[in-house]
Computed example of a mutant assay.
Amino acid sequence: MSSAPLKNIIIAGATGSVGAPILSALLAEPSFNVTVLTRASSSAKFPSGVPVKQVSDAFTVSELTEAFKGQDAVVAALSTTPVTKDDLAFRIIDAAVAAGVKRLIPSEFGTNNLDPRARSLVPVYDLKGKMLEYLIKRAKESNGALTWTSISCGSWLDWGLDPAKSGNFLYVDVKHRKATIWDSGLSRFAVTTSTGTGLAVAKVLLNPELTANKQVFLSDFVTNSREIVASLERQMGEKFTVEEKESGTVIRELRSKFDAGDFNATYPLLALSFVADVDVGYDFEKEQEVWNGKLGLPKQTLDEVVKGAIELANST
């Protein structure tokens, strides 16, 4: 396994919810040469001077291999759709091996996708788990030529409280002072901001030996639905209208829809995996080694993130 620095970085999915902050963090690091991978039909615009490599919408292994040549690291910041409906994540792995890439950060960014609790509840976690298992296998077969780092960051609460980006993913509507509490509302989950996740990716690539072949767990803090609503009410000086719901029947219905091929059930299932009384191992501070300190990430608090959400709601 080479200890040489990772300088040439290519990112796929650079305009997405997690991809955009990752791209910003990579561009802010002067030691990186950053390239964006995009499909030929994309109309996305990127900062001036950033090289862009285009491939067809088919994203074939041969095209990806050619795009990855000369790159030290590939960052996959793909949405859940290619993971649930396509094998693009696997083709990226094969292309990274074929191109001689040194480090691959797969499109994980959520829970521990190797945890059977998460995989049994949310199908996309099981599919991502299979992807990570495949990546680990291919890396071993490369005899150290390819290394990997998976990043599990829990919930992006800043994203989840921004309706324009997430559609009130966590069932909290800041602007209209409304929230849905599922079950007890006490299910605890790790939170990392989207900006913090982007910075963590840059830090991982700046520390290749430390992070090689590791699952990196991030957590600015751990919280639950009731704590989020309480922070909002305290800072806004207003009570929220709270609706209490039970998740059991809803989760079973969503699983049935997904199993029948309705991929629109994916995001509601993901949301409920955070806020319902289900155990998918989201309390990283209790169950995992948290890497925030090792990576030198700035500290964030629940009240700080909520304050940002309130300011956003008041400005729109």
Rank of each mutant, 00 (worst) to 15 (best):
V242G: 11
D86Y: 05
E287G: 05
F263K: 08
D262S: 04
S187K: 02
A14I: 01
D94I: 05
T65E: 10
V229Y: 08
A20N: 15
L26D: 12
R39I: 00
G185H: 04
D220F: 11
V75W: 03
E289A: 10
D303C: 05
I310G: 06
P123I: 00
P208K: 03
A118T: 11
K130E: 07
A44P: 10
G144D: 12
P116N: 08
L88G: 06
Q300I: 00
T316I: 11
F240L: 11
K257Y: 12
W159I: 01
L218F: 00
V172D: 05
E133D: 12
T241N: 13
E246T: 12
F46E: 03
K45Y: 06
A164H: 12
L127N: 02
R234V: 08
L254C: 03
S2C: 02
S62I: 11
A202N: 06
G196F: 00
L146R: 05
T316K: 15
Y125P: 00
P51F: 00
G70Y: 03
W291P: 08
R119N: 13
E133K: 14
D220R: 04
G49W: 11
K69I: 00
L37E: 12
I136V: 13
V52E: 07
S120E: 15
G248M: 01
P47Y: 07
T241G: 06
F221K: 08
S3W: 07
C153R: 04
K7P: 05
I10M: 08
S43F: 01
M1A: 14
A309K: 01
K128R: 14
N213Q: 03
M131V: 10
S48T: 11
K239A: 14
A20E: 13
S152P: 11
F68C: 07
V275C: 13
R117V: 00
